[in-house]
Design a binder for these strands. Structure first.
Length: 410
DNA sequence: TCTGGGGTCCTAGGACCC
DNA sequence: TCTGGGGTCCTAGGACCC
């Protein structure tokens, strides 16, 4: 049985979410940007039109923002996450196999005999009506080609593109820039351009071994996918294998004491998240980095735990161990973070044979409950700092918090 | 004095994505 | 002056084993 791969991609997702409950933001240039000195992570159609690039540093575009009356919003991930959940639920009503690729993209597998343009239209209409979000849809035989189709769909009026006819695929790929292919990043583009590979079609003409040498196994797979052969399974492995918390600081930090406090608060936050999703980590690493816009190094330290944990003091201890040799002035730290990996289900984890059980789940439970009830970091470890928690979002949690419901004056 | 070869596992770092 | 944060997968090289 033949199956088509369909990609549903939300249009300008974060800005669209901002606009749902805020009609004044509709049809206006809106960007979502992380903080006063952050970068642009989403743009409305109108913001794109005035020339604001994705990933642009806000300080570089401040004058343009003023000139064009661009509305800048700080992200509200709680809201975006909940809208995404509603969209997925809506898609589920079509009873087709799905794979969630990212917050705003879902792959759908449609059997040939159930496929029709009417179906795509129905999906678009239902999502719009039920959630207020516009979506674009691309259809083809592989994920990579469905991505190509979606890119084309975004430029069209119907926001749908079906790319199944081989002749049309050839024609499309002959003028489809290689840098727009899914999986071809900045570094690879540079190398490919040096080899005079500019269009997707040129990529297909390159020998397999040559591509493998240039881009590793990935180059291989991309070629296969563009030829219509599936190189990626429809459903990929389960997520929740790692969790990280990182932050870029407004100014460089030299004090080790300060860094320790910041990392402690990351650990606190991270362990709380682990407990919330009922996971324990077997691997833990932390890193300190100098500015990526200057020459400089990085400090990383990785630990494998004797037994998985989500008990905050365990990781606070490892942090002390990792940083004990550093002194003030060793590094000018611009960015730092922690990373939990090899996550396992908290309930199924085994106790090590030779490790002494000293953790107290009840203590963590109480801690989490207090912070849930009275607000983040009401109760915290003495080692951690209160700063460097996230910036508060512009919009309210209209859909997930009773005390933040939308109010309509009458 | 001469010091193999093949395999596995771990880890740091690179590249990419949204 | 100010350039995000959270992920995944792959690979090269070192350590170790027999």
């Amino acid at each position: 049985m033949n199956k088509y791969i369909c990609l549903i991609d939300c249009d300008n997702f974060y800005t669209s979410c901002e606009q749902i409950f805020h009609p004044a933001l509709r049809n206006k240039p809106v960007v979502v940007a992380g903080g006063k000195n952050g970068i642009v992570v989403a743009r409305s159609k109108e913001a794109k039109a005035v020339g604001i690039p994705m990933g642009g540093a806000t300080f570089e575009y401040r004058s343009l923002f003023t000139k064009e009356d661009v509305i800048v919003r700080t992200p509200n991930h709680t809201l975006y996450g909940d809208i995404a959940k509603r969209i997925r639920k809506t898609i589920d009503t079509f009873c087709l196999p799905t794979f969630i690729y990212s917050i705003d993209e879902v792959f759908l597998e449609i059997p040939e005999q159930s496929f029709s343009t009417t179906l795509l239209e129905a999906i678009q209409t239902k999502i719009k009506r039920w959630t207020g979000i516009d979506v674009s849809i691309g259809v083809s035989s592989t994920k990579t080609l469905a991505k190509v189709a979606t890119k084309i769909a975004k430029k069209g009026k119907t926001r749908r593109k079906v790319l199944l006819d081989q002749e049309e695929i050839n024609k499309t790929l002959s003028h489809f820039p290689i840098e727009d292919i899914w999986g071809v990043g900045r570094k690879s583009v540079k190398k490919l351009h040096l080899q005079k590979i500019k269009w997707a079609k040129d990529f297909l003409r390159a020998p397999d071994l040559f591509l493998k040498k240039l881009m590793g196994i990935h180059g291989f797979r991309i070629k296969k996918e563009l030829l219509g052969e599936n190189a990626y399974p429809f459903v990929e492995k389960v997520k929740d294998k790692s969790l990280q918390i990182t932050r870029t600081f407004p100014t460089e930090i030299v004090s080790i004491k300060k860094i320790k406090e910041i990392l402690s608060s990351f650990i606190e936050e991270g362990c709380e998240k682990l407990r919330k999703i009922d996971r324990k980590a077997e691997g833990f690493s932390l890193f300190l980095e100098t500015s990526r816009f200057k020459a400089g190094g990085a400090f990383t330290k990785t630990f494998t735990l004797a037994e998985p944990s989500n008990y905050t003091p365990d990781f606070l201890q490892l942090k002390e161990e990792a940083l004990c040799r550093l002194v003030d002035g060793d590094l000018f730290i611009k960015r730092a973070g922690i990373h939990f990996f090899c996550l396992v289900e908290a309930t199924s984890s085994q106790q090590g044979l030779f490790t002494e059980k000293k953790e107290s789940p009840a203590l963590m439970k109480t801690l989490d409950a207090i912070n849930e009830k009275y607000g983040k970091k009401t109760l915290r470890f003495a080692a951690s700092t209160k700063r460097y928690s996230k910036e508060s979002p512009s919009s309210k949690n209209y859909t997930t918090s009773w005390d933040q419901l939308l109010e309509i004056p009458i």
